[in-house]
Design a protein around this nucleic acid. Structure first.
Lengths: 158, 158
DNA sequence: CAAATACCTTACAAAAATGTAAAGTATTAT
DNA sequence: ATAATACTTTACATTTTTGTAAGGTATTTG
């Protein structure tokens, strides 16, 4: 019950673009550097998000990626599910059957039921948080450090 | 962002024992059959839960497993984390660093922050649901089918 | 005490997720 | 046009997770 690597790094790369706004643009190389991951890996994650319609790619010499919609219009549920698939595997019963042909609990199963409730809660939380919320939060976390204005340094020195 | 196979099957096996109560007992073979998984696999999952203190094992010819505490006293957070580890990987920053020595966001990172909030929400939900809740829910799902009491059949027949 | 039963442990095989590499295609600048 | 840049795609190596196999240990029954 954790966030996968694809989901987390994908989200991080998308946040880099989100900080540039819909008009901004960045190359994969720069995005990769910003997040400390390899260029091919960032490239792969961005390709997924491009196919999912989250980002746009511009090819050629002055190419790069940009975010497709306003960061305030993109919630985490969309990002996470597009990167890692649905929270609740749709053909769960077909896969996790042990040695049987089909899940023995298909119709009457409290675990499926509770899994559904849990997925709903998680989805609700993720849907209620946008990329912009993350960026805002980020700003609030950095600001306290640059509280004293540099121009005032001479006054407060003594 | 899904429940792992270990978590789900482990939970299912534990539920089988929970239905027997703290006095009941079942062999791995019977548990495995009840959930439609292989005996060695069920054995492995039960071993994890034994070491985690969720179940007790009785060895020897009349051996088997039993649940260690009342199902109403065991919540899903405990089960899930003991089977699959913490919701938020503790040395996350040490692992997911891309090519760097350490995560570049260690101190200032809105993603970590939001991940923490999410993990908290999930934990809250899981902590609020016990094994007994699942069993109760299960009963309510089956009951409607046996609504008419068999002993009343002669009275309502005409 | 010996045989049968059932848990225990370690090692290993298979599958899925993660991350890397390389060759290809499109665009820009010279 | 040609070279340089940057996205695109496919294939592959690595790691982790999942599931199986086998031999060992403990307890009961005759």
């Amino acid at each position: 019950m954790r966030m996968s690597a694809t989901e987390e790094y994908g989200l991080r790369c998308l946040l880099v673009l989100a900080r540039q706004g819909t008009e901004g643009q960045m190359s994969v190389a720069d995005i990769a550097e910003a997040e400390g991951i390899s260029v091919p890996y960032a490239s792969k994650l961005l390709a997924i998000m491009r196919q999912a319609g989250l980002v746009t790619a511009v090819r050629g010499r002055k190419g790069g990626f940009r975010i497709r919609r306003e960061p305030s219009e993109i919630d985490l549920l969309e990002v996470i599910t597009k990167l890692g698939g649905p929270l609740l595997d749709p053909d769960h019963c077909a896969k996790r059957t042990g040695q049987l042909e089909q899940c023995i609990h298909t119709d009457n199963c409290s675990v499926h039921d509770i899994l559904g409730s849990l997925a709903g809660k998680i989805a609700g939380f993720l849907a209620g948080t946008t990329l912009n919320d993350l960026i805002e939060k980020e700003r609030l976390m950095v600001l306290p450090r640059i509280d004293r204005r540099p121009s005032d340094a001479s006054q407060t020195q003594g």
